[in-house]
Design a protein around this nucleic acid. Structure first.
Length: 275
DNA sequence: GCGGGTGTTCACGC
DNA sequence: CGCGTGAACACCCG
């Protein structure tokens, strides 16, 4: 599942590739993945220049010279791919933006849970589509004080449920929630209100260090995720607990990584380190 | 047939 | 009672 680091990787790669190019044609083999009327989308995209790329949470946005933008949500098994025109298109390619440099931007989703949508507001901080979302964890506005305030308001929730809640904080999902809580030595079932100041600070520090490290490695490839160039992310090699059930705890505490279920999600913990 | 993210609805408990 | 919370669905297909 592409989370913040994976979406940010793709956003940065879009800036190096499609930005500055004109969309000469749009092909939509599977219109069902559109959350915008097909004719409207085609009319709004054809002949238009791509002027920027942005990200909000796990959402990827391509900004257009017309003041509109295109939102790609990769959901569970989606990918965006930058490929030469004429190269073989993988099965399940649903939307293709053909560019003026003989390359094309392809949206592909094995599960068809992901979607493509036209936005009238290209500023991701203003677009109503994202108005329900919590703060961007890597933004300057997301301070320790703000995090403490938000935690206080949701004291009854389990901390892992909060990290997964996109309206609480944007872009973190299962991999990074588990890695952050292991880093912070906090058990995922803990009620937010039971966390002391040091624990909240450690979770905050985990968020602010793990996400940038993961971006540096172009994200984590666990199932189907690949970046814009079809390459897997390398951060999976650095996972301390996620997908490491049964392995010894990397803190050498003598415990083993266990898999449980918290907030409805598979959850990896070292129960000796995380209290 | 399971599982995955999201939006929605619905039920529960404080 | 009202709110916060969480559970149950629907969507789809390897």
């Amino acid at each position: 599942v592409p989370e913040l680091p994976e979406a940010e990787t793709i956003k940065r790669q879009l800036e190096q590739t499609v930005v500055g190019h004109i969309i000469v044609r749009v092909e939509i083999p599977v219109p069902r993945v559109l959350h915008t009327d097909q004719e409207v989308l085609e009319a709004e995209l054809a002949g238009v220049t791509i002027i920027g790329a942005a990200r909000r949470g796990k959402n990827i946005v391509v900004q257009l010279s017309t003041g509109k933008a295109v939102l790609f949500h990769l959901m569970i098994a989606g990918s965006l791919l930058y490929k030469p025109v004429g190269s073989e298109r993988l099965r399940n390619t649903q939307v293709v933006l053909v560019l003026d440099n003989d390359y094309e931007l392809r949206f592909r989703d094995l599960r068809k849970f992901g979607y493509v949508k036209l936005l009238d507001e290209p500023d991701v901080l203003k677009a109503p589509e994202f108005s329900h979302m919590g703060p961007e964890p890597l933004s300057p506005e997301f301070t320790l004080d703000l995090f403490k305030e938000l935690i206080d308001k949701r004291s009854r929730s389990k901390i892992k449920a909060l990290l997964l809640d996109q309206s609480f904080i944007a872009g973190i999902w299962n991999i990074y929630a588990d890695e952050i809580l292991f880093f912070a030595r906090v058990h995922p079932e803990r009620a937010a209100g039971s966390l002391d100041e040091e624990e909240v600070t450690r979770i905050y520090d985990g968020i602010r260090s793990i996400l940038p490290n993961a971006i540096e490695e172009r994200g984590s490839s666990i199932a189907s995720y690949v970046d814009l160039f079809g390459e897997p992310g390398k951060y999976s090699e650095f996972h301390e607990v996620f997908n490491r059930t049964g392995e010894p705890c990397p803190r050498s505490c003598g415990g083993k990584i266990e898999k449980t279920k918290v907030a409805g999600r598979g959850t990896h913990i070292c129960s000796r380190c995380q209290k």
